[in-house]
Nucleic acid binder design. Structure first.
Length: 201
DNA sequence: GGCCCGATACTCT
DNA sequence: GAGTATCGGGCCC
């Protein structure tokens, strides 16, 4: 059985909000010593340019934000709260800083490895942005990693959303004291399965 | 189920 | 020196 096509760079070199929306249902794959760890992308968030006061690039080009100004389709991995790594994929054209934060996936392959790293029941393995990086073993080493490279250890496979699934659009999470209108931009996207019993919000 | 809080270190002011 | 795109444990319903 041939594996699905990987998302090409042209997918990422488009408006960030469209990229975030269309990443839902695609499969994030991490090659870990020859083994596949993967999951369907369930939640994403768009961070768009220097004007977006929730985006790290709000204070311009720095050592940290440099990757966001670079080639689309590369990973922007940053450290926060003194403990956690966050995985983003760079979007838009080179020179325009933008990225999509991956906030949740549904574990698909490599459950045993993920459980060993996380020590949690399956439904808790990857349902948060720092949980999924922990489960997949993603840290600073992946900052700048090219998801579109031939020999990528991290990439996204084209799946197409499951039939009957719906997309929930909401404001972004955890922005604290970010001023309007950025605080309320509807740039968080969640995939709801046909038979999911999601009741929150 | 929910709320509160502490951990922890990196980035920019 | 302050703030942070979070998590998990402890506590109280």
């Amino acid at each position: 059985m041939p594996s699905p096509a990987r998302l090409p760079r042209s997918f990422f070199s488009r408006p960030t909000v469209a990229v975030a929306r269309e990443l839902l249902g695609q499969r994030l794959v991490r090659l870990d010593r020859g083994r596949r760890l993967s999951g369907l992308i369930l939640e994403t968030e768009a961070y768009v340019g220097e004007d977006d006061l929730a985006c790290h690039a709000r204070s311009g080009r720095t050592a940290r934000t440099e990757v966001m100004y670079g080639l689309p389709g590369r990973a922007y991995v940053y450290f926060t709260y003194g403990l956690h790594w966050m995985l983003n994929v760079v979007a838009e054209r080179e020179g325009f800083p933008a990225a999509v934060l991956l906030r949740a996936i549904q574990p698909c392959e490599g459950l045993d490895t993920m459980r060993r790293r996380r020590g949690q029941p399956p439904e808790r393995l990857t349902d948060g942005p720092a949980k999924l990086t922990q489960a997949l073993g993603i840290d600073r080493d992946f900052n700048g990693h090219d998801l579109c490279a031939e020999d990528a250890r991290l990439f996204i496979e084209m799946m197409g959303a499951p039939p009957g699934s719906r997309v929930l659009v909401d404001r972004r999470v955890g922005l604290g004291r970010t001023p309007e209108p950025w605080l309320s931009k509807p740039w968080n996207f969640r995939l709801l399965h046909p038979n999911s019993h999601e009741l929150s919000e």
